[in-house]
Amino acid sequence: MNYNILGNSTLDISEIAFGCMSLGNNATENETLIHQALDKGINFFDTADLYQQGENERQLGRALKERRNDAIIATKVGNQWRKDGSGWDWNPSPEYIKKAVDDSLRRLGTDYIDLYQLHGGTLDDPIDDIIETFEQLERQGKIRYYGISSIRPNVIREYVKKSNISSVMMQYSLLDRRPEEEVFRLLDKNNIGVLARGSVAKGLLAGKPAAAYLNYSAEEVSKMAEIVAKFSEDKRTPAQTAICYVLGEPAVRAAVVGIRTLTQLEEAAGLPATTPLTSADRVLLGFELVANYYDQYR
C-alpha cells in the first residue's frame, strides 16, 4: 500500500481509503472486512454521523476497538437527523457541532477523531463561527485535524482563505473533472489534501450499464467506459484504472472507495500491485470527453 501525508496534517493515510458508507447491516461481516482492510494496509476509514443514523459510526468503532492505534478515523458533521427519523436538515451551528462531536466520539468508542469534516456547507453558514468551533475542538483534543466535504468552489475558497483545514473531500472521476479547472490548483498551492470520492462514477466506469451522468449522455458514458476497459486489459480491472486516473492528480491524497464485499476490498487494496498508468495514458484518457465544469457556486 502507498501512503501520503494529508495536507498540512501529520496523518499518513493510505492512498486507498475505506468508504464506510457502503457497509451493510451485518456487524460481524463488517468487522471482518475492516480487519482485513487493516491487514492489507488500508488505515484510513471515512464515515459520518449521517450514515445509518449513527449506526455506521457504531459499527466502525466496534470493529476498531482493539486496533484503534492502527487506524485513522474520519467522520463528518452538519446534517442533523429529525427526531421522527423522516430525514435530516442542514445544521452547521456551533452548538450542534459541539454536541455532535461528543455523540460521534461515544458511538466510535474513542476519545479523539483524527479528521473531523463539515459535511457540506454554503456561503450563508456562520463560517467564522464554524471555524472557531473546529479550532476549539482541536485545542480540547477531541479532534486532531479538520476539513470540509464540498464540491462548491465558492465555499472551498472561503475555508482556504479563513481556516486551517487539512483536507477537502470532493467528487472526482473521469466523468466528473470539474475540480481540475481551478480547485485542485488552489488546494495544492495551499497544502490542503484532496480526498476524492466517486472514482468509478457509481460503477459506470466499472461495468454497470451506461446511463446519463452529470452533463454526459448515456452514449458518452458508454464511450468512456469502453476506453477505460481498453486501457485496463491485462494490466488492471476497469475500476482500478478509474481509481488510478484519480490518484494521478497531484492534489489527491487518497481515493475514498466504497467497500462492501471482500471482492471489492481485494480489488481496491490490490491497486498498488498493478501496472500504473503512465502520464501519457492519463492524458489520453482525459482527451476522450470534453472536461465538464462547475456551472453553480462558482
Score class of each variant (00 low, 15 high):
298 R>H: 15
6 L>Y: 06
22 S>D: 14
228 V>M: 12
131 I>Q: 02
197 R>L: 11
82 R>A: 05
265 L>P: 04
179 P>R: 09
146 Y>P: 01
37 A>H: 07
15 E>N: 12
167 S>H: 05
59 Q>H: 04
213 Y>N: 09
79 N>A: 13
137 L>W: 04
155 V>A: 10
62 R>E: 13
95 E>L: 12
60 L>D: 03
26 N>E: 14
212 A>H: 12
256 V>Q: 00
165 I>D: 02
177 R>M: 12
195 L>K: 05
164 N>D: 14
155 V>W: 05
104 S>T: 05
67 R>F: 07
46 D>M: 05
73 I>S: 02
296 Q>L: 15
199 S>R: 03
240 Q>T: 06
290 V>L: 14
298 R>E: 14
168 V>L: 09
101 V>D: 02
12 D>W: 10
191 N>D: 15
38 L>E: 08
11 L>P: 04
33 L>G: 01
166 S>C: 14
157 R>F: 08
104 S>C: 02
124 D>C: 04
134 F>G: 01
81 W>E: 06
174 L>F: 04
107 R>G: 05
100 A>Q: 11
58 R>G: 00
217 S>T: 15
236 R>H: 09
202 K>H: 09
224 M>K: 08
188 D>I: 00
121 G>H: 02
170 M>A: 11
271 L>M: 13
168 V>K: 01
46 D>H: 00
194 V>A: 05
194 V>F: 07
206 A>C: 06
45 F>S: 00
100 A>H: 08
258 G>L: 12
